[in-house]
């Protein structure tokens, strides 16, 4: 029983830590890790619930829920990462244009595709085309 409380309490602690980290940190990757830790905390609570004593088998329902929850968490993480990548790609041309033309306006419209000759020497070429 005390192991169950320890596990469940650790889950709630993890959720609180993840929540705190999500709110205070600016960087997107840290936010993403924070939300995954918070999610892990919730899953811990579910796993602790499943325990029904040393003699009885564990309750299968919370296990099924955690499995589904993990699938959802993985898809959500993938979508956040994909959007983050798109954001970086959308930001790159604007940031380069600022360096090239020295205009401070970071307009929403992406500048026309540049030829390799226009690139600032020394900057590494991006592996994927801008989209």
């Amino acid at each position: 029983m005390s192991a169950q409380f320890l596990y469940g309490g650790a889950g709630i602690l993890l959720f609180a830590l993840g929540l705190w980290s999500l709110l205070v940190h600016e960087a997107l990757l840290r936010k993403l890790i924070a939300i995954n830790i918070a999610g892990g905390g919730v899953f811990h609570v579910f796993i602790a619930i499943a325990y029904r004593g040393d003699t009885a088998p564990p309750d299968p329902v919370p296990h099924a829920l955690v499995l589904t929850g993990i699938v959802v968490a993985v898809s959500a993480t993938a979508l956040v990462l994909a959007l983050h990548r798109r954001l970086e790609q959308a930001e790159e041309p604007a940031a380069d244009a600022e360096v090239l033309s020295e205009s401070a306006s970071a307009s929403s419209a992406a500048p026309p595709p540049r030829t390799p000759a226009e690139r600032t020497p020394g900057t590494p070429h991006p592996e994927t085309p801008h989209g």
Binding site: K31, I35, G39, V80, L83, H84, R86, L87, A90
Partner: peptide, 22 residues
């Protein structure tokens, strides 16, 4: 739309939504 503002706003929406569901 793939525009920077739209992606940034919806990335935030996604994180907020995930927090809400958790």
């Amino acid at each position: 739309t793939g525009k920077r503002e739209a992606i940034a706003a919806n990335l935030r929406y996604l994180l907020v939504g995930l927090l809400g569901s958790l």
